[in-house]
Design a protein around this nucleic acid. Structure first.
Lengths: 344, 344
DNA sequence: CTGAAAGCGCTAACAC
DNA sequence: GTGTTAGCGCTTTCAG
């Protein structure tokens, strides 16, 4: 039988000894970015590493270097079902650049984000990215900003995705404009009576989308009264429920705008379940891939997800500038079957 | 203006000094699992840490301890949209237990898995989990096994999810049984003429599901000829295309079994696009949440995703046993609208 | 181009 | 209980 006594993993010094060089040389050959190792030695080291099954001890490397390579992404609110295109994008983008990627997931409470950021900080990554919604009335924002600022002061880079308005490099969506354009498109299709199904009251994303939508309507001479804006949770289920509430109130509605696709799906499903699917149009926001096969296909605002992660990473690896930069990613309206032209 | 000179992050010794204790005591108060610090001192340390904005340097901790806490998950084949219930499950399960979670994503090639495992190894995590499909003819399996074995020899714990048949603790689905039960259920509904849309030829998962399905048919006296089994990629798009091929061949088909839900969606969409949705039944496998609102709702084999991650973690934290354990997670057939009873 | 030596920040015996 | 003293495995001056 094989001996089961815990063996220690091969260390750099083991590799060095086997290759007949010093640890310093082995280090340079294996991980050092600088050149400056004779080819013979480099070969020897590489070979020794292979026969020993050596893998760099990243932690030790991070301690010695003072910082660990790659990006750590903090995500607020990982959904159990729906796709998170941002995570996928960042995973892909880091992979393409050969950067190690680590994910830290934050719990649902407002304070959880700060906690998660501190956990992420403890990894001392070169790049820290944060994504996920934020409430406008979030009392923990100062804590968050402070944590992030110390982190930058220590030499790390911070990029926010979606978290507009904080003093860090940011990639954000043109939520307002998307809402505006969508409203105009729907009016162009002939709709006049609208309702909005939105998420929690203080969410920035939904607020901007809703405001943009209202502005778009206003510019077409249509006013959206407060009773036509339904506030619930940011989920498909909440949207499903809210739609029922709306219709029960007998408010005449030709089209419902849900502030994201997941919610639009809830609206759509409610309408279908109650047999009113062909009487009320539905539009969403995001254009998530997982929904491309729903029927009727969903009119929505397409967001170029792939670009988001790339832009974020580009910001992160470029030298810092005096003041924080914000990259706005614009979406565009995609009209599909869920909002057929309305002839009156 | 504030000074921009890179400040160093607060170290444990800084905290200790401010609290008027030794580094050892500070360490014990902050991170040490043992008790043995007077309450006064503990308070002092905690307070000092807070005023200094101290966060543990995880890397240093890992070096000192020889291993880093938490689980690293290696995922083969992260889809565009990140709709991976296993990842979500593991994120949730680790979070519930307060364990740090790290994700390493493997590229699409067979050798990429080994590479990703070695990257994961270099983090020296306590627990290494691997998920994602494997081909039966994968030539890199020996390398994978070797890497994983050295890792265990070094004291790490390995748990495989979905990757049956390797000498490590494993959580797997009852793919064969699921296929079998589904076949029986469909026969019970009155179907007799079947086709299977499957993924790459050498995939273990799809092979087991297909074999189980065929066995289920066989036990009902139905044979599935080879020309009724379509092999393509493991994606919605491939399934869409393959369905077209199938129908063009004029093979009489009453029901199509797609080996996973994503592919079933492709089948469904093709049928809908060509107006034959109500003539051919469709069934999938997985019961992924994102598809709960498709129409017609999809008959499928429900897999208890939540359990998978929990079981995997339970295996990982329990002491190792002499021989590798395998936990089989069973699914159950859920009949929905996509396979209405067929009266003949 | 290479090696010796001094840390990186933390933990873990081992004394007191 | 608490402090002292060695390291953990790697990188990085600094000499040569």
């Amino acid at each position: 039988m094989t001996d089961t006594a815990p063996v220690r993993a091969a260390r750099l010094s083991d590799v060095a000894r086997l290759a007949g060089v010093s640890a310093a040389t082995a280090s340079r050959a294996l991980n050092g970015s600088d050149r400056g190792v004779r080819d013979v030695n480099r070969q020897r080291v590489l070979e020794a590493a292979k026969t020993l099954g050596y893998t760099t001890n990243i932690a030790a490397q991070a301690v010695a270097r003072g910082r660990s390579r790659g990006v750590t992404l903090v995500v607020k609110g990982i959904p159990d079902d729906f796709a998170n295109p941002i995570i996928a994008g960042v995973v892909g983008a880091t992979q393409r650049r050969g950067l190690p990627f680590t994910l830290v997931s934050a719990g649902p409470g407002p304070a959880d984000l700060v906690e998660a950021v501190n956990l992420a900080r403890s990894h001392r990554p070169e790049i820290l990215m944060i994504t996920g919604g934020r409430a406008t009335d979030d009392a923990t924002v100062p804590d968050l900003v402070e944590a992030l600022q110390s982190y930058e002061a220590e030499g790390g880079r911070v990029v926010l995705i979606t978290q507009e308005g904080l003093p860090f490099d940011t990639v954000a969506y043109a939520n307002r404009k998307g809402g505006y354009d969508l409203a105009q498109a729907l009016v162009g299709l002939g709709y006049r009576e609208f309702a909005v199904v939105s998420g929690m009251e203080h969410g920035m994303t939904q607020r901007d989308r809703t405001e943009g939508f209202m502005a778009g309507l206003a510019d077409a001479g249509i006013e959206l009264s407060a009773d036509r804006i339904l506030i619930g949770e940011f989920t498909r289920d909440a949207a499903y429920a809210k739609t029922g509430e709306l219709l029960r109130r007998k408010i005449p509605v030709e089209a419902i705008f849900a502030v994201n696709d997941a919610m639009a799906l809830g609206v759509l499903t409610f309408l279908r379940d109650t047999g009113s699917a062909d009487q009320v149009a539905v539009a969403g926001f995001d254009d998530i891939k997982a929904l491309r096969d729903v029927t009727p296909s969903l009119t929505t605002v397409h967001l170029p997800w792939e670009q988001v992660a790339d832009k974020a990473l580009a910001l992160a690896v470029s030298p810092r500038e005096g003041s924080p930069r914000t990259e706005i990613v614009e979406g565009h309206v995609v009209v599909r079957e869920s909002t057929p032209p309305l002839y009156r």
